[in-house]
Design a protein around this nucleic acid. Structure first.
Length: 349
DNA sequence: TAACCGTGGTG
DNA sequence: TCACCAAGGTT
């Protein structure tokens, strides 16, 4: 093996000792691990989500639910509302399920990767990350940063996903027995600040001497082409009475599952909505909201009910919500946009 | 295996 | 402006 490859862990940890980002869920390099609850919570929030987006949510959750026992005892609706805006809402449902599983075993997280992997919402990455960061276990932690850094270090040009086997073997090879949590976080910091996806800064990289891909780093890893996102259309409905608006609770499975929402006409990723309002009467057009999800674009028409509303609007799962407290309803971003539009229109009246 | 599942930043 | 991207997991 190339001598420079053997030096990777030491070089990277040396860089990390001086350049580690200071984050609320992280212990400074070399210091004792933070509370496993905070490590786990941050890792789940950080799945496919930027550090900048997570910061405020992490502060809110840890202030409101300081321990995993507190979180386990929370109401589902409160947790879903607190997660609103962060996206990938299955994470919040799994977060609660996991917290309750931990509470059922006394409040202590398991300290091995295999046991962690069996918990809801913890896949290969998160189980390895928590085992390494919170419990000091040696684990091969592979996220998109590590994937990119390792593919470049070893010039692995097998297209993903097939290339993941070689990437994992290489990552395993350079993961040290000691400080594997710091090593994982160092790889992620390096990927975030130096070995970035679009414009890597090889001149600043502590691993450039060992890097076989530095001549053309943007070549790695080789990714498959993305599918085009279809354009869909749908309608959301604003029904207001006595300063309250009718909100639904979406089904647990599928898009925006478990979240509060405006009633809609059944639009989804595969089909436009049918345009049918939830109750008969007079409706007025209130404009459009454009929103892009992971796999499709949506042009949402907002319609306002202009008739009188009886006590019961629909026989579905819903509730009247005070318009002045809409920011507390925990609407996902699409419906928060629609609500903003409706409120702007009201003010103009 | 591949489709599904949010959102905000960015080059 | 817009396609790409991010500390992925589930089915």
């Amino acid at each position: 093996m190339d001598a420079s490859v053997q030096e990777i862990p030491e070089r990277l940890l040396g860089w990390y000792d001086n350049h580690a980002r200071s984050l609320p869920w992280r212990a400074p390099p070399g210091l004792p691990a933070p509370d496993p609850y905070r490590v786990w919570l941050s890792e789940v929030m950080l799945q496919q989500t930027t550090v900048a987006a997570v910061q405020a949510y992490f502060a809110k959750f840890t202030q409101r639910w300081p321990t995993v026992m507190d979180l386990a005892a929370a109401d589902d609706a409160d947790v879903m509302s607190a997660w609103a805006g962060l996206g990938y809402y299955a994470r919040a449902r799994n977060l609660l399920a996991c917290a309750r599983a931990i509470a059922a075993r006394g409040g202590a997280f398991p300290d091995t990767e295999a046991e962690l992997r069996a918990l809801p919402g913890l896949g290969d990455y998160t189980a390895a990350a928590v085992a390494a960061i919170a419990f000091g276990r040696r684990a091969v932690v592979i996220d998109a940063n590590v994937e990119r850094v390792v593919a470049r270090l070893f010039a692995i040009d097998t297209p993903l996903p097939a290339g993941r086997k070689a990437i994992r073997d290489a990552a395993d090879h350079i993961t040290p027995d000691d400080r594997s949590g710091d090593f994982a976080q160092a790889m992620m910091d390096l990927g975030s600040a130096i070995c970035t996806s679009r414009s890597p800064h090889c001149l600043l990289c502590p691993l450039s001497a060992a890097c076989r891909g530095k001549e053309a780093p943007e070549r790695y890893p080789v990714k498959p082409a993305k599918k085009a996102k279809p354009q869909r259309g749908g309608t959301a409905f604003w029904i207001e009475r006595d300063g309250e608006v009718w909100l639904m609770r979406r089904a647990d499975k599928g898009m925006l599952g478990g979240m509060r929402a405006l009633p809609d006409d059944g639009w989804n990723a595969r089909a436009d909505g049918n345009g049918e309002p939830p109750l008969a009467g007079e409706w007025q057009a209130a404009g459009q909201v454009e929103h892009t999800f992971t796999h499709f674009h949506l042009s949402l028409s907002l319609r306002l009910y202009s008739g009188s509303v009886h006590a019961r609007t629909a026989n579905d799962d819903g509730e009247w919500w005070p318009v002045t407290r809409l920011d507390e309803a925990g609407l996902p971003t699409l419906f928060a946009k629609a609500a903003r539009l409706a409120l702007a229109l009201r003010r103009d009246d």
